[in-house]
Amino acid sequence: MDLEAVRTFVAVVDSGQFQKAAADLSITQQAVSKRVAALERDLGVRLFTRTPRGAEPTVDGQAFLPHARELLRVAERAAASVRTGRRPLRVDVINSRGAASGLMRGFHRAHPGIDLDVVMLFDIDAALAALRSGTVDASFRAVAVPGRPLPDDIESVRVLDEPLQLLTGPAHALAGARSLTVAQLAGHRIWMPGIVPGTEWAAYYDDLVAEFGLTIEASGPNFGSDALLDTVADTPALATFMGEYTRLVWPAGHGLRRIPVTGPTPVYPHSLLWHRDNPHPALTTLRAHLTAGPAGHGAAGTWVPDWVAPR
């Protein structure tokens, strides 16, 4: 559909006159008439009735008007989405309940005037491709996978180390503990069906298993966090890892326990990644916001894999 014809139709409705619409659009009255006539041919209906006072929309014109306005709003949003300095800041987070989403909510509260688009890409390869193409402006990731360093044109800064907690049902052997050492988890089944080989989080948990002799099972389909919580609540032999800042809600009858892990505390390293040539003006504001407070990583008594960048 010709958007200029739609824009002209809306202008005639708003002004009530073809001549006034022509002046508002800085075109001739003949051009207004031609655009309206072309739109009427496309739609197969008459849109206006000529009156002594000017032009009034027909019943069909009245029905088409709200859709015409929405077409113009969508077109404006589409154009604004790619205008440098005007489109929203696009940020990739791993999931909607995790620590990265919490960081972005905090950023939005601190800077409500900055438009945001929050997206969720699958893994670091998808994130890097999106950063390099400009599809997203920033991404929260664990920085790298062993043997696959970041490309030279991608910058990163480590912004948060998220402590892992053990999540158990009420009948689990460890459910009554106020805290647990990593050594105490050895021999217990830790179920994490969301682990996908080749991802940065799979590399993290592979190293965690190798370092502390844990048993992590990724068997079975991943039906999402609600199904995971249901299974852990009902299965005394299973537990799972959750980040301390992961937002979870479960039915009161589940009786789930979130237990801190110490000695050392495994932490998941969240870093912000961006392309070094990205021109979005809000990207600098986001980096400054995330790094303004005390260092959120590298605390004594914590553990991360050797491949995690210290910066």
Rank of each mutant, 00 (worst) to 15 (best):
E244L: 12
L238V: 00
G293I: 09
L180C: 07
V74M: 08
A99H: 14
A183M: 09
Y245A: 12
A79M: 13
T135K: 11
W191C: 00
D2T: 09
T51Y: 09
Y204Q: 01
T235Q: 07
L229M: 11
Q184C: 05
Q29M: 10
A138D: 01
D153E: 12
L164E: 01
L167I: 03
L290Q: 02
R35C: 01
P197N: 04
L65A: 14
R97H: 14
G243M: 02
R257W: 00
T246F: 11
V308N: 05
T215Y: 14
S81Y: 05
P57M: 13
T181A: 06
H289F: 11
L256P: 00
L160M: 07
P269C: 08
I94N: 10
L286D: 00
A233N: 03
R90G: 02
R86I: 11
D92N: 07
V74N: 13
L273M: 04
F18N: 03
S156C: 11
N222H: 15
S26Q: 10
G298Y: 09
L174R: 04
P269I: 01
S271W: 00
A68F: 04
G213C: 07
G102S: 10
V143H: 15
F212I: 08
W191E: 02
P269N: 04
T291Y: 08
A100L: 01
A288L: 10
R258H: 08
W250T: 13
A186H: 06
L71V: 13
L208V: 04
I124K: 04
T49D: 10
R7C: 06
R87Y: 11
A129K: 14
R46F: 13
R69N: 08
G113W: 03
T181V: 07
G106H: 04
S101G: 07
G243C: 01
L121I: 12
T246Y: 10
H188F: 06
A110L: 06
G44V: 07
M1Y: 11
A38M: 11
P305A: 13
A79L: 13
A237M: 13
T199L: 07
R287V: 10
N278K: 02
L103N: 04
T58L: 11
G44H: 09
G255Y: 05
T8E: 02
T285M: 14
F9V: 02
L283T: 03
E200S: 10
V232R: 01
W191H: 08
L185W: 01
P197V: 06
L121C: 09
E200M: 05
P112E: 06
A300G: 15
L150M: 14
